[in-house]
Amino acid sequence: MSEQETPHPTPAPALRPVRGAARCAVAGLALAALAWAARAVWHLRLAMAGQPASGPPDQGDGVHRPLTALEDSYHLVNSVGAAVTVVCALAFLSWLDRVRDNARALSGAEPQYAYPWLFAGWIVPVVNLWIPRGIVADAHRSLFPDRRLPAVVNWWWGLWLVGLAGDLGLIHAGSTDEVIARAYTDVLPLLAADMVIVAAAGTAALMIRTLTTAQQQRMDETARPAT
Rank of each mutant, 00 (worst) to 15 (best):
V87F: 15
L34I: 13
L34A: 15
Y74P: 13
Q4L: 15
P52H: 12
A30V: 03
M48K: 06
G50K: 00
H64Q: 12
G28P: 00
N102I: 10
R100W: 09
P11M: 04
H8V: 14
V80M: 15
A109Y: 12
S79F: 13
H43G: 07
L96F: 08
A83H: 05
A105L: 05
S94C: 12
V18C: 04
L44Y: 08
H75C: 05
A27P: 01
V80N: 12
Y74Q: 11
Y113D: 00
R104D: 11
A33Y: 06
N78W: 15
A109Q: 15
A32L: 13
L15P: 03
R19I: 01
S94W: 11
R65L: 01
W95R: 02
L67K: 03
P111H: 05
D101C: 12
D72T: 11
P13L: 01
R45N: 06
S94Y: 08
E5V: 12
G108Y: 11
L76P: 06
G108M: 03
G108F: 02
D101V: 10
D101R: 15
A82S: 10
A40H: 10
A14F: 05
T6I: 06
H8Q: 15
P56R: 05
L76Q: 09
P52Y: 10
E110I: 10
W36R: 10
P111V: 11
V80S: 11
L70S: 01
S107A: 00
A38G: 10
P111Y: 04
E71F: 08
A25K: 09
S94N: 14
H8G: 08
V87L: 15
R16G: 04
A14L: 09
Q112E: 13
P11E: 00
P57H: 14
E110F: 09
L46A: 02
W95V: 05
T10Y: 07
A37Y: 04
L29Q: 05
V18H: 02
D97M: 11
P111D: 01
H75T: 05
N102M: 11
P66M: 07
C24F: 10
P7T: 09
R39T: 15
A49N: 02
Y115H: 07
F92L: 09
N102Y: 12
L44D: 10
D72L: 14
S94M: 13
V63G: 06
A37F: 04
S94H: 15
P17L: 00
D61K: 10
L118H: 00
A14Y: 07
V18I: 06
R16H: 05
C88F: 08
S94D: 12
V41S: 11
